[in-house]
Design a protein around this nucleic acid. Structure first.
Lengths: 408, 408
DNA sequence: AATCTTATGTACGATCATCGACATAATGCT
DNA sequence: AGCATTATGTCGATGATCGTACATAAGATT
């Protein structure tokens, strides 16, 4: 006991990192934290005092029994702040307000066609948020941040839509400035698939360093966790494989104007198109397929399985390139029975290298309909609880959730 | 001047990070460092004293002129330690000893078939290193680390070959333990293509966050820098695209036993096979092609260009997935004229999304034959100069290059 | 019920990092 | 040559941080 030089090596354990130990459940009692950090317990008490004073932590009812006095379990104070999570879709936007424990307090879905442009949409969203917070009687709680998922490539640093997409009129629009007038919280904007990926990772695979997420809905997209962090790529376009060209399946016309895109082969609209040529599914092929599978339509079922194999080609290649620990498949097509996932699995195990597949786990997402919102919330949480941000704010006596500089 | 709250926010500027400012050329004089860090100049002098004492930095002859007393430019002391870099190939191993400025002091190439197994090879390498250091009169200099590139998937943390490859008999062999008896320096082992990627990034594109490297030689491999760091994947197999299946080119037999691998289409041996069916190039197709192109052989030239287009399909898909800033193409095929690169470029600009390609730069590597060694050296340098390692060592009064715990 | 064991609260002193001030050095400018 | 200007060297004061020591709390054990 008390062997020398047993420090954790790395110094610099500010309040932020201590909070990190608590939220990550690595150490939740005072003595445990002292042991893990190697710091004196008195020092830890100092850190915790700062966190108590800022209202960031609470003592739980729970006590860990021991042979002596039981220890008090500490916890992030869920009521320390609100998280506003937005999942912006092509036609509908899901708005949720949750606490720091990611428990949703209010939720609403607004019909807002993104084509109406950012001014209109953002104003209506702002109104909705204000109403929701008022109605729920939460007006006094500080907002830890606003997380927004958009169906477009996003320049995460700049907080702007980064290029061509369904969101015409949004490209380059300064979303943060628009909302900054209303809120002085951090505003974090990301691509929707990235947020699905983040949610999946944080919720179900937090210990895994590399995860590949495939969204198979009406369109096809992907996101990836590399070394425990989202990879957004140079322009925020990483994961945009929907319009990658896939040889050998007859190059059908894609809605982007090119031929033979992955999406034109296995996107929901494409599978619907192949199931009953001539008819127009009205752009909601994925939902239609899901409905058919529900009814046990064998043609739809076979189409999904075949689509899975085509998708599997693309995923197999991505597997060779990225060598993930886990592949998660989401989107309307993935959750319509196990058929798409089965097709993908089939091809991956057939195609990829044994080394890369030996320990690879492939499966459908376990989220129902709130994955996007969860991702947006995790984004905010990760930012709000970031040790550097926190320590800086606490050192300056500033409230940790009030935005510091011009920063994100 | 002296506006309040102008601190760099992040505290914890130990000697390690100060050294980082110097080596990265962000701030090379005492006053400049003080400005950048926001710390008092006297504090910086303390940090520098520690670095001087450890022999890690030097004052250059260079002085930055100003209106008053010119400032002293500081520099990493290249003679503070030796870097041993090993580029292990299938038949030959290149061994280099360099200083911390990455200037090669001695170099040698040994004929060592990896098939002889780790015991034999490593023993002969050890002998060679000892001879080289003795002959060059460097026996008194500490070794900052030994960097090893292997033509196989490598578990970087464990320092072991991770799966099937040409290196039969190496799988799971504990390379570090073998060398640990001889040296007490850090021993860092990585896949050879990862080291090519690292070298390319550090030497030519240090400011770019995302880089994709393609090695087109006899085999095909790749490596990637994601957020300024190498992505090695779950089992160290990231980038292994040589045996990914590519549809639509007739599925020729690959040397791995499968059909239609990328390597079987555009690997050096495959192109040579197509140029003169029936003959056996003796396994050195890439060199043969390079020689033919040198002589102006039009058939070889056309084959290379066509190969570039096929390779381009794979690279285009990787581009969509990763959205890199830069793609560098290396290997014997890439440096044989511009034909392969031209073919790749052609396909990428045709296939990939405009957003991802608008600012994308694609080109051949500028390295000649020492890229592998450079990568191994950078690996060691990054480790030896890692702020956390350094600060810990200095705090303990330990020499920074003597290995601390059992660690890497 | 008394005792043991472990967690927690609090206070004081030692240590360390950091800073500000003053002295000195080296060049450009007049 | 002398002055202005900027870089650097050095030292003591300050303040935060940390650890030890002692006191108290709460349950387990006997």
């Amino acid at each position: 006991m008390g062997s020398p030089q047993e420090t954790t090596g790395r110094q610099g354990f500010g309040p932020g990192r201590v909070l990190g130990l608590i939220t990550s459940r690595q150490a939740q009692t005072r003595t445990a934290i002292a042991e893990v950090t190697g710091l004196a317990r008195s020092t830890i008490v100092q850190r915790l005092d700062a966190l108590f004073e800022a209202g960031l932590i609470l003592e739980t009812d729970e006590r860990r029994p021991s042979k002596g006095r039981p220890s008090q379990v500490l916890q992030l104070n869920p009521a320390a702040g609100l998280i506003v999570a937005l999942d912006v879709g092509e036609e509908r936007t899901r708005i949720a307000v949750s606490d720091l424990g990611l428990r949703i307090i209010t939720e609403r879905i607004e019909l807002l066609p993104v084509g109406d442009g950012p001014e209109v949409i953002l104003s209506r969203i702002t109104t909705a948020i204000r109403e929701m917070i008022q109605t729920a009687g939460l007006a006094d709680r500080p907002i830890a941040g606003i997380g927004i998922g958009l169906p477009a490539p996003v320049d995460y640093e700049a907080g702007q839509v980064a290029g061509w997409s369904i969101m015409s009129g949004w490209d380059g629009y300064d979303i943060r400035s628009h909302l900054r007038g209303e809120y002085e919280a951090a505003i974090l904007i990301d691509n929707d698939v990235n947020l699905l990926t983040l949610a999946e990772h944080r919720r179900y695979w937090p210990d895994v360093p590399h995860l590949l997420y495939i969204k198979a809905g009406n369109g096809i997209g992907s996101g990836m966790i590399v070394d425990r962090r989202i990879n957004r790529g140079a322009q925020g376009a990483a994961g945009d494989i929907g319009h990658a060209h896939i040889r050998g399946y007859g190059d059908p016309l894609c809605r982007c104007g090119n031929l033979g895109c992955l999406e034109a082969l296995v996107g929901g609209w494409a599978i619907a198109r192949d199931l009953h040529p001539g008819q127009d599914s009205g752009g909601h092929g994925a939902r239609e397929i899901a409905a058919l599978v529900e009814r046990g339509d064998t043609a739809a079922l076979a189409a999904l399985r075949a689509g899975g194999r085509v998708l599997g080609e693309a995923v197999a290649y991505a597997t060779s390139l990225l060598n993930p620990n886990v592949i998660v498949i989401g989107g309307a097509l993935a959750t319509a029975g196990d058929h798409l996932v089965a097709g993908v699995r089939e091809l991956i195990y057939q195609r990829s290298l044994p080394l890369a597949t030996r320990q690879l786990r492939i499966g459908p997402t376990r989220f129902k309909s709130r994955a996007g919102i969860a991702g947006a919330a995790y984004l905010v949480l990760d930012h709000a609880l970031d040790p550097d941000n926190l320590d800086q704010a606490l050192a300056q006596g500033r409230h940790p959730f009030r935005v510091g500089v011009a920063g994100s």
